[in-house]
C-alpha cells in the first residue's frame, strides 16, 4: 500500500501538483489517468523519490519516505520495479544484460539461475530470440516490453509503469495490461500504472485516479467510471468516439 498526503510539486513558478491525497492499494492495479501534461509522470516520480515534493508526505506501508534514512531508502528501492515512459534501457548493454541488471545488482544467484529467470520474464512479455540484441536494434514496442521485463525480473513489491502500452499494437497492449494485472494479483503487490488509454482502463482499472491541472478530480473503479456524471470523467472517457458509440448503444438498449 502507498498512501500520499497533500503532495505539492512545482517547477519554477509553475505548480504542477497542487496538493494530492490518495491511497494506492496492495494487490490491485491502481491507475493514474489524465490528459497529456496533467502531471501524471511528475506524480509517479514524486512517489518513487526522483522528485522531491515541496509539501506533503508519501507513505510506503506505514513509513514515510521522508522519515527513512539513506539505507532504508535504498532497501525500499530494491523492492521497486519501474517502467519509464521512454523505456530507459541501458543502451550500452544487450537485452539480456539489461533485464539481468537488477538481479546482478541485488541478488546472489548464480549466473545460470539469473539467466533462467531472465528468459522466463522475456517469455512473459512475448519476447524471444532477442537476448543478444542491443536496445537500438529492436523496435520501440519491443523496447517497452524489455523495460517491463526489467521492472518485474526481481519480483518487486511495488511496480510503477508509466504508459506501459503506448506505442504497442492493441493486441500486445492487452497482453501487457493483463500481465501487469496477473503479476499484481499473483504476488499481491502494489501496482501503479499511468495511462491515458481507455482500453487499459477497461481491462485493469481496479482503482482509478483522474488528474486534471494538478488536482485529483475523481477516484473510482472501472465499473464506477461509466456510471458517474462527474464532468471531468465523462470528458476524458468520451473523448474517444468508440466509447461514445458504446455509450449510445447502451442508452438505446435501455
Amino acid at each position: 500500500m502507498i498512501k500520499i498526503e497533500n503532495i505539492k510539486k512545482s517547477f519554477g513558478d509553475e505548480e504542477i501538483l497542487k496538493g494530492i491525497t490518495t491511497t494506492f492499494e496492495k494487490g490491485k492495479t491502481n491507475l493514474i489517468i489524465g490528459q497529456s501534461g496533467s502531471g501524471k509522470t511528475v506524480m509517479l516520480k514524486c512517489l518513487i523519490g526522483l522528485f522531491q515534493p515541496e509539501e506533503g508526505r508519501i507513505y510506503y506501508e506505514d513509513k514515510a519516505i521522508q522519515d527513512m534514512n539513506d539505507d532504508e531508502q535504498r532497501t525500499l528501492r530494491e523492492e521497486i520495479g519501474m517502467l519509464f515512459q521512454g523505456g530507459a534501457l541501458f543502451d550500452s548493454m544487450n537485452i539480456e544484460d539489461n533485464v539481468m541488471f537488477p538481479l546482478r545488482m541485488f541478488s546472489s544467484q548464480k549466473k545460470s539461475e539469473m539467466l533462467t529467470r531472465v528468459n522466463e520474464v522475456l517469455k512473459r512479455v512475448n519476447l524471444e530470440n532477442v537476448n543478444k540484441k542491443f536496445p537500438a536494434e529492436i523496435s520501440g514496442g519491443m523496447q517497452k516490453r524489455v523495460s517491463i521485463a526489467r521492472a518485474i525480473v526481481n519480483n518487486p513489491k511495488y511496480l510503477f509503469c508509466d504508459e506501459p502500452n503506448s506505442g504497442l499494437d492493441p493486441r500486445t497492449a492487452t497482453v501487457i495490461d493483463n500481465l501487469i494485472q496477473e503479476i499484481t494479483h499473483e504476488y499481491n503487490i502494489t501496482t501503479i500504472v499511468v495511462t491515458h488509454d481507455m482500453n487499459s482502463v477497461m481491462e485493469i482499472g481496479e482503482n482509478i485516479v483522474l488528474l486534471k491541472n494538478g488536482l485529483l478530480v475523481w477516484q473510482g473503479t472501472k465499473e464506477d467510471i461509466f456510471k458517474t456524471d462527474n464532468e471531468d470523467v465523462t470528458k476524458f472517457v468520451y473523448s474517444s468516439d468508440l466509447f461514445k458509440k458504446i455509450r449510445d448503444i447502451q442508452i438505446s438498449e435501455q
Binding site: G49, L50, Q73, L76, M82, Q85, G86, F90, D91, F106
Partner: peptide
C-alpha cells in the same frame, strides 16, 4: 545521453 534518456533515473530508482 544517459541523463536525457532517463537511464540515470533508472539507476537511481533501483537504489544504485
Amino acid at each position: 545521453s544517459m541523463r536525457v534518456t532517463e537511464q540515470i533515473d533508472a539507476l537511481e530508482v533501483m537504489g544504485i
